[in-house]
Design a protein around this nucleic acid. Structure first.
Lengths: 336, 336
DNA sequence: TTGCGAAATGACAACGTTGTCATTTCGTTA
DNA sequence: TAACGAAATGACAACGTTGTCATTTCGCAA
């Protein structure tokens, strides 16, 4: 316990204590094989005794890189947890840490502003998580020396983007209905400004139009169960309504409850599909068929794209991560 | 657009371009008032023209601090989102960014290991989010030069801790039942290894014992609705069961569904309280009374504690953030 | 115009690492 | 034992900032 009171122990201190040169200490850390074993042991003991820890700033200054990826959270939702999880795991695997900043509630942050703030921080590249439109989306240009990947369903003119295939997922759900003999599909949307909701609606519409079906007026929801319930009450009165696609599971549940309260049975009278596959957590014996996106995979892809761009400057790319239809029993086969 | 191809633009480059000294450029950035306006303008133009961005590494090396707080996520749950949100907002307000690392799935990370990894990164202090027991919890000692705050319901011998008052929340819910004339309260727990579940159980037990009531055998759940449903089926057959406290809302919902399927009504036959107040998102017109914890506030407090400890080395402290009982109509008043 | 104190600016070292290149030490062979 | 090439080690500069202290310039009064 001969610990000194000196603020920070430097390599130089270790070198003196071990009776070797500064550079040898550096070598013990970075290329241990080039140092004789006896010397290495002396250095290690000295480091131990003094409690040496390499200085991040000095090291990065010399190396010209940080080993950190910046993550900008424009929006922090439930699915974001899994995405961050994927980013963090992939980062660790590649030897990177994460530096994170967040748009404050109420604040209006542009891409340029986010990039400016990030470039003051220790990062070699960055990931923007962007689920709503932002003013300067089309005009934004990323700093040339900072590979930038945007997680968003929109295509960007210059930056690489990664996204769930929300549109494809919605199309898949719709086609599932149609392939089961349904002649039409009603849609309950999420919040208007949400890009996810917009994409899901687009996919729904496309799937119907591809079969020459005129899409009915979509019902406006806000992601929560109550808005789904309200939509369900309306739908229950429509005799041609046999299939409902809700933009998330909570609203789907609201729809189902409303149908039940109106004396209708799911799936016998009306079939329902939701998104995100999370209802089973809250509802026992849940029967809801749901489109699930692999948020974790999304994060992994985004991180890998950034790291790839750091190692070998690459051009713009666009990655889509497909969704999966988790089948339960909320869709009736009308073809029988 | 006379942008150079030179890798990084340094203050020196700016100084030369502006025809001033290096130090003056530094002053323009750090103490603009000490520079004559005309000079300042010249420097600003040069910075603009060259695309100068201050080098984080050099700056931190000189200053001896990073302006970053490390966050270690041992566990990434739903509630963690709000907590991170609080940490991030508070950090920004205090002028700090976050550096994050995460325990990988399956990996067994000790506090010491986490601290070792963090201290290689650009951080001035750190926050551990720890919701399960870890081997070296009691023996862990934080690095002396890195203020460490642990978010956990357990008390730590040397580190500051911040926690929801889970035990108090459970007590509050229990007393709410008792004050409404209930003579006993059944409990459905979460996963065994979860500290939250353990604390909630402890509070439930304490509240009953304080009134001289022998707590019944708790029912083991796993946080999900299905386990709550199973518990509900068991409870429905117990004639003395008028009140059920479930360790989260999903299980509470499972309990309620089971009771309904057994022909019992909530709250007329049995009263129920949950935790986390999130059922309303998924269930329309939810009636579940629930104990809600302020996760965001938790994050804010943790961050503030770290920053305070950085500015003026402080001793160990313990912060409890109280919960709130969100009253709906799932509890019947038996006193009438 | 001169002189003076205050304001503005500059020269240089230092922060703690790693890269370059020179020097020392080692193990081998003649 | 001497000589040699390879392995191990060391001296010193450099990375891009900020702090210290010296120097120059400015505005104003005598």
């Amino acid at each position: 316990m001969a610990t000194m009171d000196k603020k920070n122990v430097s390599m130089n201190d270790v070198a003196i204590a071990a009776g070797v040169s500064l550079k040898t200490v550096s070598r013990v850390i970075n290329e241990p094989d080039s140092v004789r074993e006896s010397t290495r042991d002396k250095v290690h003991s000295a480091m131990e005794a003094l409690g040496f820890r390499a200085n991040f700033a000095a090291r990065s200054l010399k190396l010209g890189r940080y080993g950190c990826i910046g993550v900008v959270l424009f929006h922090l939702s439930g699915g974001a947890v899994d995405m961050i999880d994927g980013i963090a795991d992939a980062a660790e695997e590649r030897g990177f840490a994460l530096t994170m900043i967040k748009k404050r509630a109420g604040e209006k942050m542009t891409l340029a502003e986010a990039a400016r703030r990030m470039s003051q921080l220790p990062v070699d590249g960055m990931i923007f998580n962007l689920r709503q439109m932002v003013d300067d989306f089309d005009t934004f240009e990323a700093p040339k020396d900072l590979k930038t990947v945007i997680i968003t369903p929109m295509e960007h003119p210059t930056c690489s983007t990664v996204s769930d295939d929300q549109e494809g997922g919605a199309r898949m759900a719709c086609e599932y209905f149609l392939n089961h003999g349904h002649k039409n599909v009603y849609f309950v949307s999420g919040k208007k400004e949400s890009l996810s909701s917009q994409c899901r609606m687009k996919g729904w519409r496309a799937a119907l139009e591809a079969r020459g079906i005129e899409p009915p007026e979509p019902l406006q929801g806000d992601w929560n169960a109550d808005s789904g319930y309200a939509a369900g009450l309306v739908l229950a009165d429509k005799p041609d309504c046999t299939a409902v696609l809700a933009a998330n599971d909570c609203m789907a549940n609201g729809v189902m409850m409303a149908l039940r309260d109106k004396g209708l049975n799911v799936p016998d009278d009306v079939s329902v599909i939701g998104f995100d596959d999370e209802l089973y957590k809250t509802i026992p014996n849940s029967i809801l068929t749901s489109v699930k996106f692999r948020h974790r995979e999304l994060g992994v892809r985004a991180l890998n794209e950034v790291v790839a761009g750091i190692e070998t400057p690459s051009s713009r790319s666009r990655t889509l991560v497909s969704g999966v239809l988790v089948e339960r029993s909320s869709v009736k086969d009308l073809r029988a």
